[in-house]
Write a protein that binds this DNA or RNA. Sequence first.
DNA 1: CGTAGACCCTGCGCGC
DNA 2: TGCGCGCAGGGTCTAC
Length: 274
Amino acid sequence: MPELPEVESLVRGVRQELVGKRFADVSFLRPDVREVIPAARLKDILVGETVTEVTRRGKYMLIHTNKGALGVHLGMSGRFVGASKSALLVAHTHARFEVNDGLEYRFIDPRRFGRLFSLEPGEVGSHPFLAKLGVEPLDPGVDLRGVLLEASRNRRQPVKVFLMNSEVVVGVGNIYASEVLWRAKINPHTVVNKIPVRKFIEISRQIIDVLSEAIKAGGTTFRDYRDKDGNPGYFQENLAVYGRQAKPCGRCGSKIVKTTQAARSTYHCLVCQK
DNA sequence: CGTAGACCCTGCGCGC
DNA sequence: TGCGCGCAGGGTCTAC
């Protein structure tokens, strides 16, 4: 469900509302999501503790206290939404994080591809889920073009699959990978180490531009992404190819085609993406 | 080491 | 109306 812009939008909202507040109670409605939830450790880290900051690493949201952090990944269908404590529970609500003034956050995830886990203080760089993640594309200190170029040297996979490899660069998921390549006028099926070096400037620039624009629009709600208030994002109105099979390309008017790569849908224009 | 494919799980829209 | 099928913003594990 969420890619980097959706998680970033969520993180900003949660940060604004939670930093400085204290968790009154935390409860888990089932023992596991994707893995077993470390319930006792999370209660120790959160209950009675003040939220010091809310951060993002790739598609992970991290809610910190002085005792450690709660890690949240939304998977494909996860939501992390604020609600009043007395509001009815919707199906697939797996965890409740109660704050001290009648508010709580709920983790809802029908497919259970998401995860809830604990981090010890200072473990952001070494936790098994985070340690192997690639660079943050929107970090101004990152030479994105250089990283992509270097990582592509020994790879023979299609460029779209390559861009979705979170061990190289985080946050580029199935929607934005197609969008980036349309903007860069590159066919998603092109083997990545056959792409001319000069084109990596354009690829990296479009990654940064697309993700930045999507964050400004509050993310993309193609099916069911929602922010902490249950509101959708609006970037879907700006999608050039994703979900637009058989519709005209906004640049050349040719039909957008839908193909499959690594079991995921890919969209591109046959004419202007070479 | 790099790559392809299976797999995890539930819900929804579609065609019949 | 009811049912089966395919598909869904992700990530990990295995076999080659």
